[in-house]
């Protein structure tokens, strides 16, 4: 139910962005009316300070924002899974070296570093995506490593070795299928994080202000003093779009959590019963 709602919201948003050339054939940059016109039949979400149609900006800009968020999500997840699995499976020195790097990256304060890096690199969504991947993979690697470590102790991994499977095959065919729910949940979380963090960077002016995205829409709304003009539609629209995307992914995530195999959870029946006995 939750997953269906989340999926439906996400699908509508993504389809609208994909269909941008049909929904707003003039493109996001065309100044088609006066500045700060309120929503009307001609301009569903009004216009911004440059006289550009907010709806057109929203659907065109969503392409950049969602693509950036998705690439960051997929990128960090790939790195995290690869690093986490290798560390967990091979253990020993490899694990210690990897864990050291992971812990160093984890202690680096994320957001300030992001701002510094984004300020020195050429602006644009690709830079933001790269910065977010560099700073974002470590936590996931630790998460995957911990999960994989507990799975590695299980006898089915030893059984696969006894059967004669090679290490990479054990990782890919025996470990990985048991991690899908964790990986999917992490991916959802990373996409949400990338969308909000990326938009925040763009809002701060660290993106490419010439390209349309939900973050730059907010940047321009701020720049054009939309708040003072009372043009709420210029910032509420992209803000709501970001919030809706994040919310739908969170709903998807809930569903994934519930679907996680309950057999993997530890029983605590005896302890609970004893606590009840003890304290009434």
């Amino acid at each position: 139910m939750k997953s269906a709602a989340g999926g439906a919201i996400l699908a509508v948003l993504a389809l609208a962005c994909l269909a941008a050339p049909l929904l707003a054939p003039d493109g996001p940059a065309a100044a088609t009316a006066g500045a700060f016109e309120a929503p009307s039949a001609a301009h569903w979400l009004g216009t911004n300070g440059q006289g550009q149609d907010v709806f057109a900006q929203l659907v065109w800009g969503g392409r950049g924002s969602l693509l950036m968020a998705l690439s960051v999500g997929v990128g960090t997840t790939l790195v995290a899974v690869l690093v986490g699995l290798l560390a967990a499976y091979f253990g020993g020195l490899a694990d210690e070296a990897i864990s050291l790097v992971v812990n160093i990256v984890l202690t680096v304060p994320g957001l300030p570093l992001i701002i510094v890096l984004a300020a020195f690199l050429p602006p644009g969504p690709a830079t933001i995506a790269m910065v977010l991947i560099i700073t974002g993979w470590a936590f996931g690697a630790r998460l995957i490593r911990a999960q994989a470590l507990s799975l590695r102790q299980r006898d089915f991994i030893a059984a696969a070795k006894v059967a004669g499977e090679r290490p990479l095959r054990v990782i890919a065919a025996e470990l990985l299928p048991n991690l899908w729910s964790v990986i999917a949940a992490y991916l959802c979380g990373q996409v949400v994080f990338a969308l909000t963090a990326g938009s925040a960077l763009e809002f701060l002016g660290l993106g490419d202000a010439g390209q349309t995205s939900w973050g730059t829409m907010l940047f321009w709304a701020q720049n054009d003093s939309a708040l003072l003009q009372g043009a709420w539609w210029t910032f509420v629209s992209p803000g709501l779009a970001i919030a809706l995307t994040a919310g739908s992914l969170a709903l998807l995530n809930f569903a994934l959590d519930a679907a996680t195999n309950p057999r993997l959870r530890a029983p605590g029946g005896a302890r609970r019963a004893t606590e009840v006995l003890r304290h009434g």
């Binding site: 029946g269 005896a270 606590e275 009434g280």
Partner: peptide, 19 residues
């Protein structure tokens, strides 16, 4: 008032029953 003082329990795995 009757649990523990009149009926007590011992489980298979004491590690689970002890804090």
């Amino acid at each position: 008032s009757i649990r523990w003082s009149e009926i007590a329990m011992v489980f298979q795995n004491a590690m689970n029953a002890l804090n």
